[in-house]
Computed example of a mutant assay.
Amino acid sequence: MSATSSSSVTVLRILCIHGYRQNAQSFREKTGAFRKITKNQAELVFLSAPNLVPPHKTEDGESETENHKDLDERGWWFSREDDYFKAQDKTNCAKGYEKSLEVVKQTFLEKGPFDGVLGFSQGAALVSLLCSLQQLNPDGAIKFDFAILVASFKSNSQQHQYLYETKVTIPTLHVFGETDGVIPKDMSEELLQHYENYSTLQHPGGHFLPSSSPQKKIYIQFLEQQIENKKKKKNRLSD
């Protein structure tokens, strides 16, 4: 049996954590190309954050849209008490974070197990925190074997700083764009010092999950390695 056909027997279940002002459905739609190129390796499960993000305000303080509720824009935490988030904010605020953590835990308990977690932007920053939480408490509800972090960054909320004191040892793939104007690549690169077993995928684009031919090979290679790791783990447990 060929390597390709043998690996297709095992499919990885990956929990997907959306970015700020997204939700499970909108993130699923934005990952269409990624889902297509990884369909033989991964089953993606999408989760919505519990915190509703207020609409953008105009200069006179009015909402930019009358149908804000229809947009269903969500976030994993706020860096300011007035329900606002900016990655660069150095703050004592992480409003909504504990609620998000409970939603993630419940998802692992009710819809797990998951082999890995994928996050984008603020969602990737949350995934980074989940990696550290698991490292500190390997017997907790949140358990996964690898992570893919796209346009991630180190949280500047004081509440999260202790989570960067322990290096993450699970395999991780860090994806970031050279021209990302939302999360500059140096913010993503700064995060790497907190990981021991990481790979990087740097692309020439901006703030999105790249899924063209140059990136496809790297995703498949990374996921195939996780499939092999899963098989070895299963064999060890059955011995």
Rank of each mutant, 00 (worst) to 15 (best):
A3D: 15
L12W: 01
L12M: 14
R13H: 14
L15S: 08
L15F: 11
Y20L: 07
R35P: 12
N40G: 06
E43Y: 15
F46V: 02
L47M: 02
N51S: 13
V53Q: 06
V53D: 04
E66W: 14
N67Q: 11
H68D: 11
K69R: 13
L71H: 14
E73A: 07
R74Q: 03
R74E: 03
G75D: 04
S79A: 11
S79K: 05
R80W: 12
D83Y: 11
T91W: 09
A94N: 08
L101P: 04
L101F: 01
E102D: 12
V104R: 00
F114H: 00
F120L: 01
Q122S: 00
L126E: 02
L130A: 05
C131V: 02
L133K: 11
Q135D: 12
N137Y: 15
N137V: 11
D139W: 14
G140F: 15
S155D: 07
S157M: 15
Q158M: 13
Q158C: 14
Y164H: 04
T166G: 05
T172K: 06
T179R: 11
D180F: 00
D186W: 10
E189D: 03
Q193F: 06
Y195S: 05
L201P: 03
P210C: 07
P210T: 01
Q215G: 08
K216N: 11
I220A: 02
Q221P: 10
L223G: 09
E224Y: 07
Q226L: 01
E228H: 08
K233L: 10
K234E: 12
